[in-house]
């Protein structure tokens, strides 16, 4: 059986926001080390990998591997019934076909209980190779969100060029073109806003902006985002969750004919 408790329902709500535009239904794979999700979008262009480590919950208990097949639209409906600050407990039995969700107000004078019907999901699990990337850029997640939003006015594609001087995002479309360059910064007052670049060799990649806009739904989960890139391979876009795990997205590049 599974029993896992989070001090704030807001976290699960935010996680759901971060994946529900990409994926309609997926398995939450629970075991004694935590809860993991790996799911691709329907076009097999983007993949989300989510990890919530057991020690990020208090308490956490799961005796054996338990795949919970969840329709995210349905889960979203139930999570709308939780207050952001509610204590959230999820429970599932080994042979059950429902997920129990309990929302408890902080002073414990209101307890609401919901059951979500589970489903059997035959998901395709991809093996993601351990990759040494040529360029790893850590930057403000809010800045990344703004750049994706701004350049989506220009085009539905974005070109990312990384050199040791900085990272340049550019778009070219019918109205004209635009670009935003962030220089590697060592002297900003706020660490959250700094851009740092680890570079083995310069990279230049083209991506569909639509998917980046889905990924940036994870912005409330972390003040930082890390973009890991090598030429002609999928980009890894990672949001780390404090003391809990991560949300990672992989996006296949657009490649020249």
């Amino acid at each position: 059986m599974l029993e896992a408790r989070l001090p704030q329902a807001k976290l699960l709500k935010s996680l759901l926001e971060a994946i529900k535009e990409l994926v309609v239904e997926c398995n939450f794979d629970c075991n004694d080390s935590g809860i993991a999700v790996q799911a691709m979008d329907s076009s097999h262009v983007a993949l989300v990998a989510l990890l919530l480590r057991a020690d990020g919950f208090d308490p956490y208990r799961c005796d054996r591997n338990l795949p919970l097949g969840i329709n995210l639209t349905s889960l979203n409906k139930i999570l709308k019934c939780a207050g952001n600050e509610d204590i959230l407990t999820i429970k599932a039995s080994d042979d059950g076909d429902v997920l129990n969700l309990v929302f408890e107000s902080k002073d414990s004078d209101r307890i609401s209980e919901y059951e979500l019907k589970l489903m059997d999901i035959d998901s395709e699990h991809l093996g993601i190779p351990d990759t040494q990337y040529d360029a790893v850029v850590s930057m403000s997640s809010g800045e990344f969100q703004r750049i994706c939003r701004d350049l989506s006015q220009i085009s539905d594609s974005i070109v990312i060029d990384v050199t040791k001087e900085g990272i340049k995002f550019s778009a070219s479309g019918e109205v004209g073109n635009g670009s935003v360059t962030l220089k590697q910064s060592g002297s900003v007052d706020r660490e959250d806003e700094a851009t740092t670049i680890e570079l083995q060799q310069a990279v230049s990649l083209t991506f569909s902006l639509k998917y980046f806009q889905y990924f940036t739904k994870a912005t409330p989960l972390s003040s930082r985002v890390v973009l890991s890139m090598s030429n002609d391979v999928p980009i890894l876009v990672e949001y780390k969750l404090d003391n809990l795990g991560y949300v990672r997205y992989y996006l296949a590049p657009k490649i020249g004919d």
């Binding site: 262009v45 983007a46 993949l47 991809l126 569909s208 999928p234 296949a252 020249g256 004919d257």
Partner: peptide
């Protein structure tokens, strides 16, 4: 011009 690739050409099936 560029063409959208898919993840299947980079990541193997488990």
């Amino acid at each position: 011009s560029t063409k959208q690739s898919t993840l299947g050409s980079f990541f193997g099936k488990n």
